[in-house]
């Protein structure tokens, strides 16, 4: 396993470097920079542009340097915890992001937990009770979950939570707690508001996961070793949990890597509909206004999540199922 970990880490390091270079190139691709956009905006509003001041700002922010120097300053700065300066907010990126990053992590961790907790038992029930009324009913709910647009579900849930529980519309906490220090009251308010976006974002993921796990478990349950185990009188639960379930978990685990960035980026639209103080809406405005360091930091955050998610899922898969695949050979 040490060999595997070392080789996997050695794949991950150049990947992260390449991703940071590509991210930097992407945020530099649109013509001009933030100051060019600012000048165009000021001119369109008929304001005078002080050329000397703009040149001074360009020098101050390092925008007059060659691209590779700008990249190195940004990349090394991230290692130091300095993610650059947000031109739009006139603040360091770390200060602009503030609690948003943590709230995003809490929201997305809650969503992933929701997806697993709901899809796991439903998929097992559906597979072990194939073509029963319960299976059909849960499959129907799954398809509805897949087919319902997230923003629509968000609006419906917002309306009913306000009607039934009196929860304030939008946001991840009661307005009275915004920009206040963290207290138990604020945490409880976040928890009270959290379940709506978690359900909204998690519904489609849950439905997809149920379909996949059900299909995989059905495949495993029809294999000869399961039939043999049952014929030999192994208790049904043990015959289910010992190998078939474990084998059908592979796609579950393999999905961890993909799920993290999908959930984060997929939550951006929902975050705008629900007015959530997460990173999604901020990323969109940062990209629109060419706030390069803010946008770049968000994109790197997504990339790091993807790469680490993939690492975790690959390690778990290697530990759980170190089987050779027929047709693949040993390389050394």
């Amino acid at each position: 396993m040490l060999d595997y970990l070392v080789r996997r880490l050695l794949v991950m390091i150049p990947t992260l470097i390449a991703v940071s270079v590509i991210t930097f190139i992407i945020i530099q691709l649109p013509p001009g920079d933030y100051l060019s956009t600012l000048i165009a905006e000021m001119e369109s509003q008929g304001e005078n542009v002080d050329v000397a001041k703009i040149a001074a700002l360009r020098e101050q922010y390092g925008l007059d340097r060659p691209l590779w120097q700008q990249y190195l300053v940004w990349a090394v700065g991230m290692l130091r915890g300095d993610f650059g300066y947000s031109f739009q907010y006139q603040l360091p990126v770390a200060d602009v992001v503030g609690d948003r990053l943590m709230l995003t992590i809490v929201l997305n961790f809650g969503t992933i937990l929701f997806i697993y907790l709901v899809s796991f038992p439903i998929a097992i029930y559906s597979a072990t009770h194939q073509y029963s009324w319960g299976d059909y009913g849960l499959t129907l709910i799954g398809f509805i979950g897949l087919a319902t647009p997230n923003f629509l579900l968000a609006l419906i849930l917002l309306y009913f939570t306000n009607l039934w529980f009196g929860t304030s519309i939008g946001g991840l906490m009661d307005p009275s707690y915004i920009d206040q220090p963290w207290t138990w009251g604020k945490i409880l308010s976040v928890l009270e508001h959290l379940w709506v976006p978690v359900v909204v974002i998690g519904t489609s993921g849950t439905a997809a996961m149920i379909r996949r796990l059900r299909a995989n478990l059905l495949d495993e349950l029809q294999k000869q070793y399961v039939v043999t185990a049952r014929a030999k009188g192994l208790p049904p639960m043990r015959a289910l949990l010992k190998y078939p379930l474990r084998m059908s978990l592979n796609p579950f685990i393999a999905d961890i890597g993909n799920m993290l960035p999908q959930v984060v980026s997929g939550s951006a639209v929902v975050a705008m509909v629900l007015s959530l103080p997460t990173t999604g809406p901020m990323l969109i405005t940062a990209l629109q206004s060419q706030d390069m360091y803010l946008a770049g930091s968000f994109l790197m955050f997504l990339a790091v999540l993807t790469v680490f998610g993939m690492l975790l899922s690959d390690l778990a898969l290697a530990w759980l199922d170190p089987r050779i695949r027929l047709g693949a050979g040993t390389g050394r």
């Binding site: 396993m1 060999d3 595997y4 080789r7 996997r8 794949v11 690959d314 290697a318 170190p322 089987r323 050779i324 695949r325 693949a328 050979g329 040993t330 390389g331 050394r332």
Partner: peptide, 16 residues
């Protein structure tokens, strides 16, 4: 006897 491969298609791996 376990088999590890860093590639997605599980080619070019090694056994332990």
């Amino acid at each position: 006897l376990r088999y590890f491969a860093t590639r997605r298609d599980k080619e070019g791996g090694w056994m332990q």
